[in-house]
């Protein structure tokens, strides 16, 4: 009977690795200025899936050590589970599209969903390396095993977190306040035409008095490629409307000559610094990002 019970060593590996893995997921759940995931249900869902991911990573080493090679194939199951997390996230955000002040857009939703999937891999990798370290150290002192496993797990978390960290608009462009001007029924920001939807006097007056605008100016010519992407601009507009609210109207427009992007709206909270901060912190979408240095390479194929 006792032979069928899991050994203390393996139990320590599994428990420690699961805790460190779940902790890794908990540390990467950010309720930042984007207010996503929303407290508390969003937290719970992602903590539980993180716990499952960590458990799968934790039992892999004990399974291998007991020559239970077939059991390792459940890692494939884990991948499937994470894909489902991505799918669920995508569906949920798409369902919400019609209720938001501005659309997130498909590109932004895809980016968010991918991030959620990736963070489950964090939990899996961290718990796996924690378990592996404990197995390799294999000291007779339990505390040394646990400490070494935890430290390695945290280092791995730091490294993959750095690796997966993306850029934000503030890294590639300057964001400054734009001057709103309404000429008859047309809206201009810093002289750039934005919209002619201000056909009534009320609309024109409202925009003139209460409107806020920011202009995004690319720092390098090649950053225009990312900024011109419709999904990227939509993401910036979404973050802008999320941070200061929308009383009425929101527009985005690109200027062709220098690649400036205008974001303007009539906000609920008239705080231009908040608006600039939100736009600066909008992530540069993965689907938009291009490596400029790769475009310059001349390894083969050219004389």
């Amino acid at each position: 009977m006792k032979e069928n019970i899991i050994s203390t060593d393996h139990l320590i590996i599994i428990v420690t690795a699961t805790i460190v893995g779940t902790m890794a997921r908990a540390l990467t759940i950010k309720e930042d200025f984007r207010q996503y995931p929303t407290y508390p249900n969003g937290y719970l869902i992602h903590l539980v899936t993180g716990f499952v991911a960590a458990s799968l990573g934790a039992v892999a080493i004990p399974a291998l050590m007991t020559k239970n090679f077939v059991a390792v194939t459940f890692l494939a199951l884990a991948i499937q589970q994470f894909r489902d997390v991505r799918k669920a996230e995508k569906e949920s955000l798409k369902d919400l599209e019609n209720t938001e002040s501005a659309y997130r857009g498909d590109a932004y939703i895809d980016g968010i969903a991918k991030t959620f999937e990736a963070r489950n891999y964090f939990a899996l990798i961290v718990s796996f390396t924690t378990a592996l370290t404990i197995q390799l150290v294999d000291s007779k002192f339990i505390s040394i095993n646990i400490m070494s496993g935890t430290i390695t797990g945290l280092i791995v978390l730091y490294v993959i977190k750095r690796f997966s960290k993306g850029k934000v608009l503030g890294d590639i462009a300057d964001v400054k306040e734009g001057k709103i001007e309404v000429r008859e029924s047309e809206l201009f920001v810093d002289g750039i035409f934005v919209s002619n939807l201000l056909g009534t006097e009320n609309a024109a007056n409202m925009f003139q008095k209460e409107g806020l605008a920011v202009v995004i100016i690319p720092r390098e010519e090649h950053f225009r490629i990312a900024l011109d992407h419709y999904g990227q601009r939509q993401a910036a507009l979404f973050e802008a409307t999320r941070s200061v609210g929308v009383k009425r109207y929101h527009f985005t427009r690109k200027e062709y000559e220098k690649g400036k992007i205008v974001i303007t709206l009539v906000p609920i909270i008239k705080d231009v610094n908040k608006l600039i901060e939100a736009v600066k912190k909008t992530p540069v979408l993965e689907s938009v990002k291009k490596s400029h240095s790769v475009m310059d390479t001349n390894l083969f194929g050219r004389e």
Partner: peptide, 18 residues
């Protein structure tokens, strides 16, 4: 013309272009 435009726009929650 202005009054008609505003009335319809308000009722339909729509935007106006002049």
């Amino acid at each position: 013309q202005k009054t008609m435009t505003q009335d319809i726009a308000k009722a339909m929650k729509a935007d106006v272009v002049k």
